[in-house]
């Protein structure tokens, strides 16, 4: 999902960078006021951990392999605001040490993978935790696995919206492709997140007690929620339901609209895949089914994994 430079046009770059900056500003404010000083090095170490985790490949069917992205995992382990900062730092290092993801596209990447993925995933996790009446560890694994899947898919949909808004890839193609691929990738992410949560809960459950909480946290939740909704409204809504393009008006007002962008997006407006009637509707239905399937899969995972916990298993107990 790392967008390279050159795929986004000026207005999308500016809009996504503004959204990312707002998200990081909320996170910074929250971390400054609530993070205890002795937890500060943990941010850096968690960022290094996420990066190291991304380099270990999980085997997937047919000799291919995938790796963890880790946004939702970090949010569950450290709290959402810390996770936003951690993921932002990971993306900055990936950009300036490995040329992975563009410099100008850094705003879009931070918004997709650092803000929306983390915050929406954490919100789903918190909701599921409060609504399920299961044994504590089981509900943790279930909520973590589903939240990780959800965050991945939502991030990819935003990515598709940004590409479509820039006129690089037409929405009827970009949306199903990105969403479907990431609905599959998200299974791996959810599975890995659930398994890792289980290992941490089994060995050091007290690490999970030190997360942020309190009245100020809910204030930042409102901020993240508004930001996520704004992102969806700007990048996805114009394609999904034919709303007027709000960003177009804003960019006309501000005068930085580029001439090419309009001419490029127009031919795609009524574009439909020949072999499926209406792709957006088809994908929406497929997405609904996929969501239900992922929900059931996460529940099954928790059912299967957590009873095994009662009988102590030696093989997964320690690293060395």
């Amino acid at each position: 999902m790392h967008l390279p430079d050159g795929f986004l046009d000026a207005r999308t770059t500016v809009a996504s960078a503004t959204a990312a900056a707002a998200g990081v500003a909320i996170a910074l404010r929250q971390v400054r006021t609530t993070l205890e000083p002795h937890r500060l090095p943990m941010l850096g170490l968690a960022a290094a951990f996420v990066f190291a985790a991304q380099m270990l490949n999980f085997p997937v069917a047919g000799g291919t392999s995938g790796h963890l992205v880790g946004g939702v995992l970090t949010a569950i382990l450290l709290g959402p605001s810390a996770a936003v900062l951690v993921m932002t730092c990971v993306l900055i290092v990936q950009c300036f040490m490995f040329a992975d993801g563009g410099v100008l596209a850094l705003g879009a990447n931070v918004f997709n993978m650092g803000v929306v993925n983390v915050c929406a995933g954490y919100a789903v996790f918190a909701l599921l935790r409060s609504f399920t009446r299961m044994e504590q560890r089981r509900s943790m694994v279930f909520a973590a696995a589903f939240a990780a899947w959800f965050g991945t898919v939502l991030g990819s949909i935003l990515c598709a919206g940004e590409l479509a808004l820039s006129g690089t890839a037409p929405w009827p193609l970009a949306f199903p492709a990105m969403a479907n691929v990431h609905m599959v990738i998200g299974i791996g992410e959810g599975l890995a997140t659930g398994l890792i949560m289980l290992v941490v809960m089994r060995n050091r459950p007290e690490l999970l007690d030190a997360r942020e909480h309190g009245a100020r946290a809910s204030l930042s939740f409102i901020g993240y929620g508004l930001l996520t909704c704004a992102g969806l409204a700007v990048f996805v809504a114009p394609f999904a339901c034919g709303w007027p393009d709000g960003l177009e008006k804003v960019s006309q007002l501000l005068g930085f609209e580029r001439q090419g962008a309009n001419a490029v997006t127009a031919p795609f407006a009524d574009y439909c895949l020949p072999w499926i009637g209406s792709t957006t509707a088809a994908t929406a239905i497929a997405g609904l089914i996929g969501t239900l399937l992922a929900f059931a899969a996460a529940y099954l995972l928790a059912r299967v994994l957590v009873p095994a916990l009662r009988a102590p298993r030696k093989d997964a107990a320690s690293g060395n």
Binding site: H38, L40, A48, A53, L56, F58, P59, L77, L195, A316
Partner: peptide
């Protein structure tokens, strides 16, 4: 199945170790 279990164990352990290291760094 074992490969997934192993990798998850390694990553979970890696997180725990980085948390402990962070305390020592502080």
């Amino acid at each position: 199945r074992l490969a997934w279990d192993n990798l998850a164990a390694i990553l979970g352990q890696l997180f725990i170790r980085s948390a402990e290291r962070a305390e020592r760094i502080y």
